[in-house]
Design a binder for these strands. Sequence first.
DNA 1: ACGATGACTGCAAGCGTTTCCACAGGTCAG
DNA 2: CTGACCTGTGGAAACGCTTGCAGTCATCGT
Lengths: 346, 346
Amino acid sequence: MAGIKDVADRAGLSIATVSRALSGKANVSAKSRKLAKTAAAELGFVPSYHASSLASGRNHNVGLVLPSVHRWYFSSVLEGVSATLLDAGYDLTLYNVGDQAVRRESVLNDFLLRKRLDAVIAVALVLTDDEIQQLLAIHRPIVGIGGALAGASTIRINDSGLSRMATNHLIQLGHTRIAHLTGDPALNQDFKLPGIRQAGFEAAMKDAGLPVRPEWQISADFTIQGAYASARRLLGMGTERPTAVFAASDEMAIGTILAARDFGLRVPHDLSVIGMDGHELGEVFGLTTINQDARGQGALAARLLLETLDAGAAAGNDGAATPRGATDREYPTELVIRTSTAVPPA
Amino acid sequence: MAGIKDVADRAGLSIATVSRALSGKANVSAKSRKLAKTAAAELGFVPSYHASSLASGRNHNVGLVLPSVHRWYFSSVLEGVSATLLDAGYDLTLYNVGDQAVRRESVLNDFLLRKRLDAVIAVALVLTDDEIQQLLAIHRPIVGIGGALAGASTIRINDSGLSRMATNHLIQLGHTRIAHLTGDPALNQDFKLPGIRQAGFEAAMKDAGLPVRPEWQISADFTIQGAYASARRLLGMGTERPTAVFAASDEMAIGTILAARDFGLRVPHDLSVIGMDGHELGEVFGLTTINQDARGQGALAARLLLETLDAGAAAGNDGAATPRGATDREYPTELVIRTSTAVPPA
DNA sequence: ACGATGACTGCAAGCGTTTCCACAGGTCAG
DNA sequence: CTGACCTGTGGAAACGCTTGCAGTCATCGT
C-alpha cells in the first residue's frame, strides 16, 4: 500500500507539499499540484482515513441513530440523509438501535462517544437529559428529527396540529363516530409521537363537542400488518362501528383499509380513513393523508449539519464545529385529499 | 477531553498498562486493571477511535453496500447485518448507492478503498471484474449477498431453482395460462436477479410444455405500487387473461393481488398469485410464497465476516485478515402455501 | 541457595497523515 | 536600493493510541 511518502518521493516533492496539493489547499504551485496528483494516481494512493482524521480532527462521518429501518418513515429519512451525505463525500454510520434499551444504551455510551463522528442525527428518539448532556459533551452538532431533543436543533412537523387537522377533516365531512388508531405505547417507550398525535385527535374531538370513545382508541405497531390486526378487532366488535378512522400513520391507515375490505366495508362509502405520512403506497389505496416529506427531512438535517461543519472548518475551529444555538424548524406538510374520505353513510 | 495519559496519571500506572487493562488484554494484574478502569470511568475516558485504529490496524467497522433501503429485501438484510454488528461492537458504514452509476463508482473508488473498513458486504450488486479486483486489492474480506461476486464469498438462494419451484407449484395446481411479473431490467442494470428468476420461470414452463406468452411477461420496479400499475395493465388487456401470476417478489405479488381486487377478480378463485421473499405482509394477503430469510442472510454474512476477522486477529495477522478461499453458500428457503393459490377456475 | 521461569510493568517506537513554523526567493512600494 | 510582504516549500512536531521489547520482581524446582 502506497503511503504519502511514496507519492512525495515519486513526485520529487516533500510530504507536506503533497498533502497540501492533494487536499486542495492553497499555496501550492500549479506545477507541484499536477506533479503530486500524477504521482498519486500512478501509485493508486488513497490517504489513510484514520491517519488523516487523527491529524486533522475531522472525520467526514456522520452518525444516524434510528429505532427501525423497516418502517416507511425511518427508511425514508435514512434515504435522504444517505444521499446528501454520500454526495458530500461523507460516510454514514448507521445505528439501528431498535426497541432494545440495552442496545440503545451501548450505542450512546460506547459508539457515539468515540470521537469518530463529526455530527449525529437522531430520529424519533426521546433522550433523557443525561443522555443529551452526554451527547452535547462531545461537542459535536446534533440534530433531532421528529423527536424532542431539548438543547439540540430539531426538525419536526407539527404533530399535534396536524393530527387536529386530520381529525377536523373528518369532522367537517360530517363524521361524529371517529376512531383513532395510535402507535403502540408499550413498544415505543422512546417515541412520544403516538401520544402527541393522540392528544391532537382528542383536542379536535373535544373542540367539536364529540365524544372520544375509549373502545375506539386502539393501537398498533405502526406497520400495515399490525394495524390490520387491530383494525379487524375494532371493526369486528359487535357493537356500533365508527364511520371514520384517523390512523397515526399511512401504514396503519392502509392496514385499516385492508381490514375494512375484509368486512365488506367500502372505503370511503362505509368507512372513511385518513392517514398521516405520505407513503408511496397511499396512491394505490387512494388514501387521504397529510404528506410529510420524510426523505426531505433527512436531507435537510444532513445539509444543516454539513453547513455547520463547513462553517466550523472555515473558522479554523479545530474541526470540532461549535454547534450554533439550537434551532427548531417545522417542516412543511400538506393535506392530500384522495378518495378514502367522504361524508358518512346516511 | 481526557486522553489515555490522563487516565494513566490518575491511576498511577503507565500508559501501556492502562491500554492493556482497558482493552482486556492479558498480563495485567487484577489490581492494575481495576485501577485503570476506575480512573477511566471517573474521567469519562473513551479511547479515540482513530488513534487506536491507526495504531492497531483494526477498524471495527464493516461497510454495507446496498442499492436501496426501501425495498423489503434490502432493509431486511440491513437489519440483520446491523443487529449482528452492533452486538459485536462493530460500526456499520452504510453505502446506499441507489441506481446511479456515478454514485456507485465514487463509493467504490473513494469510500471503500480508504482503509477504513475491516470488511465489506455487498448486496445484490453485480460488479465488473475490475471492480472486484479493486476490492480484493484492499485485502479485506468481502461477502456478497444475493448477487454473483466472482472471487468473493457469497450467500445466496437458488434463484433459478426456486423460480422453477414456484412456477411448478402453479403448474401442478393445473394452471396453464401463467403470467410472470419480473423486475424492471432498465432500472436494475446492476442487478441480474430478474433475469435469473425469469429464466427459472421459462424453464419450468418449457419443461411442462406450456407456452410462455410474451404479453404475459411483464415487469415492474419491485415495489407494490409499481407492480400494481403493471398488473392492472396485464389484467386490463381486453384479451384472454392468465389464471395465475408468478411475481418475482412478494411486494410485486401483493401489488398484483391489489390490482386483481380492483378488477373484481377473487384470489385465488379467479386468479392465483405466488410471490417470492417472505415479506411480513404476506400473511395479511394470504400470499403463497417462497420464504427466504433476508434478515438471516444479513446476519449470517455479518457473522461470517466477524469470524474471519477474529481468526485473522488471533493469528496476529496484522488485523488485515486474509480472506479464506471464497465460499458460496446457499441459504435455506421454504415454500409457504397460503391461500393465494388454488386450482384454476373451471 | 540459585538459576530458570513467568507474571507484570514501563519505555519508546511506531501508525500515516496534517499543519505549524521557518525559510528561500521574488515582487513591489517608497 | 532596501525593507516589507507574499508565495511556495520542506522539516518536524503533533494527533492519541497499541505493542514489541527489555527489565523487575517473586515463585519454584532441584
